[in-house]
């Protein structure tokens, strides 16, 4: 029976990498492996975690979750351990450097560690082909793709108020996710749909960016149409999804984008800027835009709001697409991606 060490910077609730790691444990346990978590700090969830400082004897298989620079990756590099890299992408620092001077060190560190991990890793598993391509470029030899493990919820019944349509985005308030483009698009949209509102779910990753967004909305005269509701629990998120007329994502950089999948599963039509991984995750189940100037985005949103046939097509196709990322499908993909590494 194999012993598997899952290395994750922190196991905490509401964190996509943390949730993925917990579900990855289930995949390995179902194959008869014993699993332990190794982390930089104690878990805020009720999970036993071995701190990296006390991690002396590695398991038969080491799987490193990598989304930012970490002491775990440093330990693997220093001890030259054959760790399988489970890559969730690292935001390129140039997207946030004007906003988050404190944050970019971890991003740069994480990207530098990729180069050191490449020769050590017998295999890498990426959330998407987009992420896999980055690893191939860095020099990882054996790269497989398996979508992030996530318990995709079907969502509540839709309760959309078409007289006051809600445009929803879910994601950390960070510059690479381009919330300012959402606000700009809303300002353009309100010229034809004056009751439209923008609801943003997600905790602020940058105070300076959040302050600028508030000022921007105010200057454009749409401050009263924009709600930043912060991080919410699952039930509240489900309610926001049920109320949303459109899910709008104008991010410049995403490695997988779980919220888009959740929106599709909840039957919310998706419109997204065609950048980074979005075309891969959305496929033909949403409208991808090559131009995100305010009126181009507003035209797209208005089209979905005003054309019930298109709206229904996106809802139906979105639900089908979300099934491609169901826990059962993603678990199977992970079993295949780790094939041959877990001894029975």
């Amino acid at each position: 029976m194999s012993s598997v060490d899952l290395l994750v910077p922190e196991l905490k609730s509401g964190d996509a990498i943390g949730a993925h790691t917990l579900l990855l444990r289930d995949v390995f346990v179902a194959q008869g492996a014993t699993v332990r978590f190794v982390a930089q700090q104690p878990s805020s969830m009720n999970e036993d975690v071995l701190l990296v400082s006390a991690w002396k004897k590695p398991g038969d298989l080491i799987v490193l979750q990598h989304g930012i620079g970490s002491l775990l990756a440093e330990a693997v590099i220093k001890r030259r351990l054959p760790a399988v890299l489970n890559y969730h992408n690292i935001t390129p620092p140039e997207f946030v450097e004007a906003w988050d001077a404190d944050h970019i060190a971890g991003l740069r560190w994480g990207r530098a560690q990729l180069h050191q991990l490449a020769p050590l890793a017998p295999r890498a598993v990426a959330d998407s082909q987009y992420n896999a391509n980055e690893l191939i470029d860095v020099g990882f030899a054996d790269v497989r793709v398996a979508p992030v493990l996530w318990n995709v919820r079907k969502g509540n019944d839709r309760q959309v108020d078409h007289d006051a349509p809600v445009i929803l985005f879910v994601g950390r308030v960070a510059a690479n996710k381009c919330h300012h483009d959402l606000i700009a698009a809303l300002a353009a949209l309100t010229t034809t749909h004056p009751t439209a509102r923008l609801v943003v779910v997600g905790s602020p990753a940058s105070e300076s960016y959040q302050r600028a967004l508030d000022a921007f909305a105010k200057r454009l005269g749409v401050g009263g149409h924009v709600d930043f509701v912060g991080a919410v629990d699952d039930a509240t998120l489900a309610a926001h999804l049920a109320n949303a007329a459109v899910f709008l994502c104008l991010s410049e950089h995403e490695g997988f984008c779980v919220p888009v999948v959740e929106a599709m599963a909840a039957g919310v039509p998706v419109i997204a800027y065609d950048a980074a991984v979005l075309s891969e995750t959305v496929g033909d189940a949403g409208i991808l835009l090559g131009d995100k100037t305010p009126h181009a985005v507003a035209t797209a949103v208005a089209r979905v709001l005003d054309e019930p046939g298109l709206e229904q097509h996106l809802i139906d196709r979105g639900r089908q697409r979300a099934d491609d990322f169901s826990l059962a499908v993603s678990s199977k993909a992970h079993r295949a991606a780790f094939d041959g590494l877990v001894a029975r």
Binding site: L288, D291, A296, R303, H313
Partner: peptide, 23 residues
């Protein structure tokens, strides 16, 4: 008319092109 699954991609491509042309 609702497009079927097989021409969904063509339908979405057309919608996207129409949106960009309209803008």
């Amino acid at each position: 008319t609702q497009p079927n699954a097989t021409d969904s991609q063509a339908y979405i491509n057309r919608v996207r092109a129409e949106i960009e042309a309209e803008a």
